[in-house]
């Protein structure tokens, strides 16, 4: 009878211990990032891998999300004779919420997995031990450039995603919902505030940090063999996604609590 309770208690304890270890790792990465030496070339390489190469998936996701959102808001607004709010609600919804969250989740799927797999493979093939023997701190060489690059790149991805998301809504608005192209854009700009956009970019930076830290953390704790790397990769994606959604709620409370 107590079996499920014991199992739940144990799982909860392990989850909390894991969160604690992840938080300590994040603090170590930040501390390492504040001290030299700095691997600028690695940061540039990671900006390309994390930012540039994520553009297609983030852009396409945002475009289709904006288009679907316009249809949903139009359908919902029609119940209150409020179809005209489509441009402004699409813009606010995309910039404040869906742009950063979708970009964060897409980057989590693409980047947290690849970071965990790459670092995990480096661990099982002794490349991380080799770094230590070459007087190089793996945290500074592997984790700091990835975390810095992701923290800088994801807000840019969010900005691109916001633009394409609004464009998706605009295309559906003028193509399917009967909006005038210019009026749609005027309504979008008129009701959008700077903080709507800025809050989304801040969220993007936080999500980028979460994605890269989580990928590095699980990669460096990877078990032996292909199975160990596979487990690390899966854990990195799942944890990053959950943390992004939790952080999104916390930041939304912080930014928009009436």
């Amino acid at each position: 009878m107590t079996g499920p309770l014991v199992a739940t208690g144990r799982a909860t304890r392990e989850a909390l211990a894991g969160i604690g270890a992840l938080a300590r790792f994040a603090a170590r990465v930040v501390a390492a990032g504040l001290r030299g030496p700095f691997h600028g070339v690695e940061v540039l390489r990671q900006l390309g891998a994390i930012g540039w190469q994520s553009l297609p998936v983030v852009g396409l996701t945002a475009l289709f999300t904006g288009a679907a959102l316009a249809l949903q808001i139009h359908a919902g607004g029609a119940r209150f004779n409020a179809e005209s709010v489509v441009p402004s609600i699409v813009a606010i919804g995309i910039t404040r919420e869906l742009g950063p969250v979708m970009a964060g989740l897409m980057v989590a799927a693409r980047v947290a997995s690849s970071i965990a797999a790459e670092i995990g493979t480096m661990k099982v093939t002794q490349q991380i031990d080799a770094l230590v023997t070459l007087s190089t701190d793996p945290l500074k060489y592997l984790a700091v450039p990835r975390v810095l690059a992701a923290t800088l790149a994801v807000p840019v991805l969010v900005a691109v995603g916001d633009s394409l998301g609004i464009m998706g809504g605009w295309l559906v608005g003028i193509g399917r919902l009967g909006f005038d192209a210019q009026t749609y854009l005027v309504n979008t700009v008129e009701f959008l505030e700077v903080w709507d956009i800025a809050s989304g970019l801040v969220k993007g930076a936080a999500f980028g940090f979460i994605v890269a830290v989580t990928g590095c953390f699980f990669g460096m704790r990877s078990g032996q063999g292909a199975q160990g790397v596979g487990r690390a990769t899966k854990a990195a994606v799942v944890t990053a996604a959950v943390l992004i959604l939790a952080a999104n709620y916390a930041l939304t409370e912080l930014f928009f609590r009436g």
Binding site: T125, Q126, Q127, D129, A130, V132, T133, S135
Partner: peptide
């Protein structure tokens, strides 16, 4: 470590 070198079993090249 500054005056140390190591050959790893699987070479451990980056």
């Amino acid at each position: 470590l500054e005056r140390f070198g190591m050959l790893f079993q699987g070479a451990a090249l980056f």
